[in-house]
Amino acid sequence: MKFFFSAGRYFALLARVFSRPERSRIYLQKLFLEIESLGINSVGIVAVISTFMGGIITLQVAYNMTNPFLPTYLIGLGNRDSLILEFSSTVMALIMAGKIGSNITSEIGSMRVTEQIDSLEIMGVNSASYLILPKIAAVVLMFPFLYILSVFFGLIGGLIVGPSLGAVSATDYINGIQYAFTPYYVTFSLIKSLFFGFLVASVPAYFGYFVEGGALEVGTASTRAVVNTNILILVFDLILTQLLF
């Protein structure tokens, strides 16, 4: 298996994934299971990381505002826009690629090397759609929710850390996160989250589905999946920023 995936093979797999399901009720049941496994179980790490990063960004903005003529409410504004535009969408997607992506690759890869996928094919089941489609749907549905959650906890982190360490008063910070708010920034990042969610689910699924060998190769495939997903996230971040701004 090459380090970078084959685009032709990837799109051929997606064509099988999005073919008509045999039994929609089973797919719906799997969807809810994947939402819990891949989405709900990621809420904790998103909340913790976002809270600390919100506090860190607030301190960094405060410590770099050396000009006394700059109003202190800009600290809250800087934290808000950093979270909304980049951290809670792109950086959080990179983190989720490591958590969710490696999980998907190892699960599907283990089924491949133990011949469970071959058994599904023998029984006439479209294994690509049955195994991958619920995961893609669950991650795409959950990513906007995780993005909103990340922004919220990041702002709370800044509100806790900034005033407690004397970097900015609570009043100025709250005024800053309300000042000159642009709703399109949220729309833009939500669109990015949908794209990133699709990448985080589909690329690791590709590496897991086509893994060859044993347990060692499954671990290697997980690493390759995370690296490729991260690269694609950054590429699409650049493309979407150019197209949507």
Results as ranks from 00 to 15, higher is better:
Thr90Cys: 14
Leu38Glu: 07
Ala128Pro: 00
Phe69His: 12
Gly154Arg: 04
Gly39Ala: 06
Phe11Val: 15
Leu59Gly: 05
Gln60His: 06
Ser202Thr: 05
Arg112Pro: 01
Phe32Lys: 15
Pro21Asn: 09
Phe152Arg: 08
Val151Ser: 02
Val161Asp: 04
Ala201Glu: 04
Ile45Val: 13
Leu149Phe: 08
Thr90Pro: 01
Ala167His: 01
Ala12Thr: 12
Phe152Val: 14
Phe181Gly: 02
Tyr206Val: 08
Arg80Ser: 10
Leu216Glu: 12
Phe69Ser: 13
Ala215Thr: 11
Met53Tyr: 09
Leu159Asn: 00
Phe18Ala: 12
Asp172Thr: 07
Ser42Val: 08
Ile231Lys: 08
Leu31Gly: 09
Ala137Gln: 09
Phe18Arg: 09
Ile84Ser: 00
Leu238Ile: 14
Pro163Val: 14
Tyr63Gly: 11
Leu131Lys: 00
Ile95Ala: 14
Thr220Glu: 13
Ile231Tyr: 03
Ile84Asn: 04
Asn79Trp: 06
Lys30Ile: 12
Pro204Ser: 08
Glu212Ile: 15
Arg20Thr: 12
Met111Asp: 06
Ser37Thr: 13
Gln242Met: 14
Ser150Lys: 00
Gly98Ile: 10
Ile160Arg: 03
Phe11Ile: 15
Val151Trp: 03
Ala225Ile: 05
Val226Ser: 02
Glu22Thr: 15
Ala138Gln: 03
Val151Gln: 00
Phe3Gly: 00
Ser24Pro: 02
Phe153Lys: 05
Gly166Asp: 01
Thr182Met: 15
Tyr185Cys: 11
Ala201Trp: 01
Ala215Leu: 13
Val168Asp: 00
Val43Cys: 10
Val203Cys: 05
Tyr63Gln: 15
Ala138Val: 08
Gly101Lys: 11
Arg20His: 07
Phe198Leu: 13
Tyr209Ala: 10
Gly8Ile: 15
Gln178Glu: 10
Gly162Trp: 03
Gly214Ser: 04
Val125Met: 02
Ala180Cys: 08
Thr229Arg: 07
Thr72Pro: 04
Phe153Ile: 10
Ser164His: 06
Lys30Val: 15
Ala225Glu: 00
Ala180Pro: 01
Lys135Thr: 01
Gly154Trp: 02
Gly44Arg: 00
Tyr73Cys: 11
Phe145Ala: 14
Pro68Ser: 04
Tyr184Pro: 06
Ser119Pro: 04
Leu74Phe: 12
Thr58Phe: 07
Pro21His: 03
Asn126Met: 01
Asn67Ala: 12
Tyr209Leu: 11
Ala47His: 00
Val48Phe: 06
Leu120Gly: 01
Asn230Ala: 13
Ile108Met: 03
Ile136Asp: 05
Thr72Asn: 14
Arg112Lys: 15
Val17Leu: 08
Pro71Asn: 08
Ala137Arg: 07
Gly98Cys: 10
Ile45Ala: 06
Leu133Trp: 02
Ala15Leu: 13
Phe152Lys: 09
Pro68His: 02
Phe153Cys: 09
Phe188Tyr: 12
Pro144Gly: 10
Val218Ile: 10
Val139Asp: 07
Ile57Trp: 07
Ala138Phe: 05
Gly154Met: 08
Gly55Ser: 13
Gly39Thr: 02
Ser193Gly: 11
Leu155Glu: 08
Met111Thr: 06
Leu165Gly: 01
Leu155Arg: 00
